[in-house]
Design a protein around this nucleic acid. Sequence first.
DNA 1: AGAAAATGTTATATATATATAATATGAAAC
DNA 2: GTTTCATATTATATATATATAACATTTTCT
Lengths: 85, 85
Amino acid sequence: MKQRKLYNRINLLRQERKLSRKELAEKIGVNFQTVGYLEREEYNPSLDLAFRISECFGLPIELIFSTKPQPPLSEELMRWRNKEE
Amino acid sequence: MKQRKLYNRINLLRQERKLSRKELAEKIGVNFQTVGYLEREEYNPSLDLAFRISECFGLPIELIFSTKPQPPLSEELMRWRNKEE
DNA sequence: AGAAAATGTTATATATATATAATATGAAAC
DNA sequence: GTTTCATATTATATATATATAACATTTTCT
């Protein structure tokens, strides 16, 4: 199966939480270079790794990863605020 | 990284929708034997494949896959019904 | 009963993710 | 200025997911 390229917000979320790649890597149990590969979207994580990242940030997988390029979180927030008028 | 074993409801969801493995396999673009491996939980899907399955069933990844053994869907339903008393 | 379809299972080859090492660059600290 | 830390990047080895084939077993249909 040809894997589609997936997009993610790992870099953004990591910075929000003021973590270095090394620190994040330790929390999710991978090599710190692997975090680099993921942030640069050079390859996709396994589902297990996606779950670890999701657990680490306390956010659902769909908020972190997506099949389409991700809009800025601020935009997404505004969409929700407008929804409940 | 040692991958954790993940659990899923693919078999249940596929049967609800009355699909054969072959039919489901075609919809998500993998070999039909791969569906077998996934249903038997012999290995985890890639994140991309998890997204395809999620899209195919119209359900979030977290409802289909989990890091802990999955309770019957009926139980999960009752938990939600009780929540809104 | 027999044919056809679905499933279970094993084996092997290929594709992709992950670990590790090595090196380069840039920023911050002092 | 040089030391330290974070990041970027490349290369290679290993682990894991996926494709494919082959065959056995079960279920369904007639």
